[in-house]
Simulated assay, not measured.
Amino acid sequence: MQLKYQQVEQFLLYQLKNGDFKEGDKFYSEAELKKRFDVSSATVIKAINELVSKGLLVRQQGKGTFVSRARRGKLVKFFDLEKDNDADETVTVLSIKREHDPRILKELNLASINSYFHIIRLRCSNNTPVQLHHTYLVSEYFNQVALKEPSYYESIYEKIRQDSGIDLFSTPSDETTGILFPAPQQVKTLLQLQSEQQPIAYIRRHSYLFDDKAIEYVESYKRWDYFKIQIKTV
């Protein structure tokens, strides 16, 4: 038996292959698909993501989803290579606060009356601090349990999938990486950098739901000696 998202995907695939949409046409909105199939946002997002991964649809931030003009293309995969794949890793939640900083509200495309939850986590490899994460999570997807038990969000994506049925590992995202030098003092302290001459990788990422609605914005800082990216065509 097919899952709900597979049923939605198959119907949409039929429409695309049957010529109901032309290349470059704007595709259905999330609201239209939810109403048409009487399913949840998570189901719609999963179906659309499958079609995006097949190269049949493309997303344009702030505009929506469109039928691909180039149905076939070369895909690439990015690999964040670790210094030691067999290392003993731990994640510690340092703090969780409700905030409404205008800079972050802008990154999340939220109005000034809104707020979000700021989750700070430190990842260690064999007891060495490797990466500092600042996750800004839209309030409606935050579980209040974490205010009493911060460790609840040691794995944020797993908890969001558990609580909301949304798989942030496969939802659309954009990410930029740069090098910071010198490192901010707080980052230098938490990552235990011994020298002023050590740069760090600074990574910014937005994760989106369907129709380009942001669910999280992340700023993370990673030690230069643990940072390596590999790109492969598939």
Rank of each mutant, 00 (worst) to 15 (best):
Q2K: 09
K4R: 12
V8Y: 01
E9S: 01
F11K: 08
L12N: 03
Y14R: 12
D20E: 11
F21I: 07
F21A: 00
K34Y: 07
R36D: 10
F37D: 08
A42N: 04
L56K: 01
L56S: 00
V58D: 09
K63A: 14
L75D: 10
K77I: 09
F78L: 14
N85A: 15
N85Q: 11
N85H: 06
A87E: 10
V91S: 03
S95I: 06
I96T: 05
H100N: 15
I104Q: 05
N109Y: 09
L110Y: 06
N126Q: 06
T128V: 15
H133D: 13
H133E: 08
H134E: 14
T135Y: 06
T135N: 04
L137N: 04
Y141D: 04
K148Y: 10
E149M: 06
S151D: 13
K159I: 09
I160E: 06
S164P: 04
D167L: 06
L168G: 01
T171S: 12
P172V: 10
S173F: 15
G178H: 04
I179P: 02
L180T: 13
F181H: 09
P182R: 04
T189W: 07
T189V: 12
L193E: 07
A201E: 08
I203C: 09
L209C: 06
D211V: 01
I215P: 01
W224Q: 12
D225A: 05
D225W: 03
I231K: 12
T233Q: 13
T233W: 09
